[in-house]
């Protein structure tokens, strides 16, 4: 057997790259330590993760952990909403009728061509003034039983912040829904025309075709890109800190102001984002491999 593979003989390039990277790190650390004369102090961080609760006589999550939980809740709920919205819009995008197609196109183009920050400001104003009062979220803590409050607390966080969190979820969902729409559209359009024709030839209606032939296949194709969109969403969720949603980035800003240890806290929080994003990516890729094995 003749293999058409050149032997790997460019080790010197690797060595050069490695050397450059190491040099850069050493240089940055050197600058920070000697030139900035920065005194690193990480000791305050654990106290902002958990605090000792005198009343309960146990540890309770402090700002950073609370922020992390809110971020995760935001990401999960908004991906669910975005998936529903994106699913509907994605189906409309592939409709034969002009009106649904146009509506969905308008939505996608609107969101893709406005900076996220601007979008969030515009919609926050609308949502917080119109939608959350409509849902009656502001006085929910007075009207509900302790049991519902407990469930709500687990699902959406502290009741007193409910309208705040819901506004954040709706903003993110609207925003991410546009990307999900494109994912769903691509999924539907990736199903070969022969599938639709096969279905038509046995008399299935348009709706039955969607329901029994196209969608089940499209969903399989949509799951992996949807998973990566979820990870993007975890990171993008930091943007709602701008409208005072009390998630990780927002609370970190508070910690940064009160402790004045700006460098440490942001480096640490970058690490937190990295860990959850990376863990999700790892989990999803494991899941995907599992699913691939199952099918084979």
């Amino acid at each position: 057997m003749i293999r058409n593979k050149a032997p790997y003989d460019s080790y010197w390039i690797d060595a050069l790259v490695l050397f450059a990277v190491v040099f850069l790190i050493v240089y940055v650390v050197y600058r920070v330590n000697t030139v900035l004369v920065y005194n690193w102090d990480w000791s305050f961080i654990p106290g902002y993760l958990f605090r000792w609760d005198e009343e309960l006589q146990s540890y309770a999550p402090n700002l950073l952990m609370k922020g992390l939980f809110t971020t995760i809740r935001l990401a999960i709920w908004s991906i669910i909403l975005a998936a529903i919205l994106g699913f509907i819009m994605g189906v409309m995008r592939t409709s034969r009728r002009l009106f649904p197609r146009m509506l969905s196109r308008l939505y996608v183009e609107l969101i893709r061509n406005i900076p996220p920050v601007v979008f969030i400001f515009v919609f926050y104003f609308f949502i917080s003034s119109q939608i959350t009062p409509l849902l009656g979220l502001d006085n929910i803590s007075e009207d509900s039983s302790p049991m519902t409050l407990k469930v709500l607390d687990f699902l959406l966080g502290p009741p007193e912040l409910l309208s705040n969190v819901v506004a954040g979820i709706i903003c993110l969902a609207l925003f991410e829904g546009a990307y999900v729409t494109e994912i769903v559209r691509a999924g539907i359009q990736s199903i070969p025309k022969g599938q639709v024709e096969g279905g038509m030839s046995i008399g299935l209606s348009r709706i039955q075709l969607m329901r029994y032939v196209v969608m089940p296949q499209a969903v399989q194709k949509v799951v992996p890109p949807l998973a990566s969109q979820f990870i993007i969403l975890i990171k993008d969720s930091s943007i709602v800190s701008l409208i005072s949603i009390q998630e990780l980035t927002f609370l970190t800003m508070e910690v940064a102001t009160s402790t004045q240890r700006v460098f440490e806290i942001w480096v640490f929080v970058a690490g937190m984002y990295f860990v959850i994003s990376y863990a999700c990516a790892f989990g999803f890729s494991r899941l995907e491999k599992r699913m691939a094995l199952h099918k084979a």
């Binding site: 022969g194 024709e197 096969g198 030839s201 046995i202 008399g203």
Partner: peptide
């Protein structure tokens, strides 16, 4: 619809539903 229920079709590429 009536016609499609009465007329079966077999395609070159089979067009079976893979799922």
């Amino acid at each position: 619809h009536k016609v499609r229920c009465e007329v079966g079709m077999v395609f070159q590429q089979f067009n079976l539903f893979p799922h």
